[in-house]
Design a protein around this nucleic acid. Sequence first.
RNA 1: GCGGGUGUAAUUCAGUGGUAGAAUGCCAGCUUCCCAAGCUGGACGUCGGGGGUUCGAAUCCCCCCACCCGCUCCA
Length: 551
Amino acid sequence: MGESNKATTPSNAGKSMDAIVALCKRRGFIFQSSEIYGGINGFWDYGPLGVELKRNLKDAWWHDVVRCPPDGPDGQPIDMVGLDSSIIMNPKVWVASGHVGGFNDPMQTCHQCKKLLRADHVLDLLWESKWLMSLAEYLDGLTNTDPEAQERAQSWAKKEGKKLAPGLAFVRGDAKAISLLIIELALCLPSRNKLHPNPPFCPYCGGDLTEPRQFNLMFESHAGPIKDDDNKVYLRPETAQGIFCNFRNVVDTSRVKVPFGIAQVGKAFRNEVTPRNFTFRSREFEQMEIEFFINPDSAKQWYAYWRDSRYAWWQSIGLAGENLILREHDKDELAHYAKDGAGTSDIEYKFPFTAPGFGELEGVAHRTDFDLRQHAQHSGLRDKLKYFDQDLQVQLQSQGVSKEEIAKRSKYFPHVIEPSAGADRGALALLCEAYTPDDTRPSKVYMRFHPRMAPIKAGVFPLVNKDGMPEVARKLYRELRGRFAVQYDAKQSIGKRYARMDEAGAPYCFTIDGQTLTDQTVTVRHRDTQQQERVSIDRVPAFLAEKVGSP
RNA sequence: GCGGGUGUAAUUCAGUGGUAGAAUGCCAGCUUCCCAAGCUGGACGUCGGGGGUUCGAAUCCCCCCACCCGCUCCA
């Protein structure tokens, strides 16, 4: 890494990912999973400080999204409830969601240039490939039965073919190996008529492609004692489907009315081809997802509401400034389920390893009614999964709409706005944002966490470990620890203790000194400025509560 | 999955075939009335793992694993 991280924007200047990873290990934020056995690719453990950080993030999310979400567009409180669904579900769920069929894309690799390709993209790429176009030009519309076609192909192989398609069998030396298929393919180019569903030629070099192979994007296991296909189950690749599958349960039992949301925090698993960038792309990760169910007519309004309020939320916990952006997707990058929707946005953070680019923290998507319809169909429940909108019914009645029309319009599949955030990515962004090199202080670096996110809220120290100070400090510590994550430390010099708290990112330190014993005040040392002030020892809990907030 | 690089203490790193080291951190004690001060003592190593060559391997060879970079992928 090193070199690539030096030339970033001012807000990322001096932040090396290597140094952040080292600090995470040294201070107990994040460890490699199974480290004593050599680790395992794509899996990570959170240490004592890391788990506090991630828990603060998840607790803040739960509080700000489930218990007390921002008021709706009409200024009224919105309905939101929580859920905790199982990781392993009936495998039909993943057929309905499309994960079993659609996302298990067969892949092919090129024997010559080793490129990895999606089998269903090969033909399209071939039509655009330079070498095939060049060959087609040489053949100039001859028919494939024309003997001249082979001669021209041979002369092409000796000239352009050498540069454009070094991997192609007859270019590589076997001049007799001119494949009829290749010639036919080239002749088809203008009309793009498919001759072969998977022509085994690399679009980049002309090399031989392997047979299409299935990549396992979902982790599989077996429920029950017999390990056969009848018992095959999947570890969920997203928490969302647990919410959709419980849509009716929640509606029937919770007195919620559209518009309302169901929120869930939980682990998800994806067998990523290439785990990369520390915890950013892991095979086991934690999601914080909301499915917000709405009347389709209000999709635009609610999409904008969630997009903007989720962006504001990440800012509120300390990801501010130019490192955080809100990016609306272009039409062509929309997921299959969002093509007809009001839009999709990413909330993205400029990580040291993505800079000057950005990496996704949260996606806000209008998923239309795709998922509920899929489950309605696959479960056989059909219209029973529809929502009966009694408010709408009353409203339509008062407008004098016909009974038939009312029956039709007040039963529908709600549309869904899905704000889906990555807890591990969020924690990683908090770590990167907090990491602040500072050569002027003893620790050379401090973690500038937002007080609400900080794993340790405060240190409590006796200035010297005698003269009655430890007793007073311990008493304060015992008072505070019931409400806040605080640490007591009396060892070594006061400077070392401040430095340790800087690296852990504790925003405050309370120090009992000689003056405390006479006037009942303590010093508060502020992490970011290193400034001190005196407050009455009685006021310390209130001081912390005010600064740290809740939860 | 491909190519390149790296892997020695908690961290950063030195150590090119002959007794595993340094700095920082950590722990204990002394000292210390505000920023890793000082002094004394201490603990911590499967040298990424396994196999091979050798009288002898951190060092040479083979296989594997992990991390970083690039490609590819990312519903």
